[in-house]
């Protein structure tokens, strides 16, 4: 099995991975980071979005072996010192989650959108979240939360 080294939420990790393991599996089953959810097997739902070298990636669509040397952030690594990230805070304030299953991927994608597009507007949020499915909220509160969270991130 290939041995890979990577950084996950700031911590160095070395792992023996089977070539067929998906990155989501490494995170969930072997590193115990179960905040990254898997909701489908066709890369449609987006519940598994994490950041790989600062970019949003569906971790069910990347092999673990491909993450050798990568800097990875999962939902567990977003809050700092017990304080919610502004995007997490905005999701809570705007009731942008119900069952919570799509939420980790939705938040990670939203943070990436806000980081990549400093002038993020509502249509851009709707477009940007195309790859993230939510079955509970009807999205309106998610859109509101991303706008608020993005503004808070700009400071």
């Amino acid at each position: 099995m290939p041995v890979i080294s990577l950084t996950v939420n700031g911590n160095p990790v070395t792992a023996d991975v089977e070539p067929r393991w998906l990155l989501s599996r490494l995170l969930r089953d072997h590193l115990g980071l179960t905040g990254t959810h898997v909701g489908c097997d066709t890369s449609q739902c987006g519940a598994c979005v994490i950041h790989v070298d600062g970019k949003p990636v569906k971790s069910c669509a990347m092999l673990a072996a491909q993450a050798d040397g990568a800097q990875i952030t999962t939902i567990e690594g977003l809050a700092q010192k017990g304080k919610l990230h502004p995007m997490q805070e905005a999701f809570r304030d705007n009731h942008a989650l119900q069952c919570g299953f799509c939420t980790p991927g939705m938040v990670m994608m939203s943070v990436a959108l806000a980081t990549e597009q400093p002038d993020l507007d509502e249509p851009a949020v709707r477009k940007g979240l195309e790859g993230n499915l939510c079955r509970c909220t009807g999205y309106q509160n998610i859109i509101n939360a991303v706008m608020v969270g993005a503004k808070a991130m700009r400071g």
Partner: peptide, 12 residues
């Protein structure tokens, strides 16, 4: 419930 759902510490 949001705090655990938002920090990836829910238990599904």
């Amino acid at each position: 419930e949001d705090v655990r759902f938002l920090t990836g510490t829910g238990t599904y």
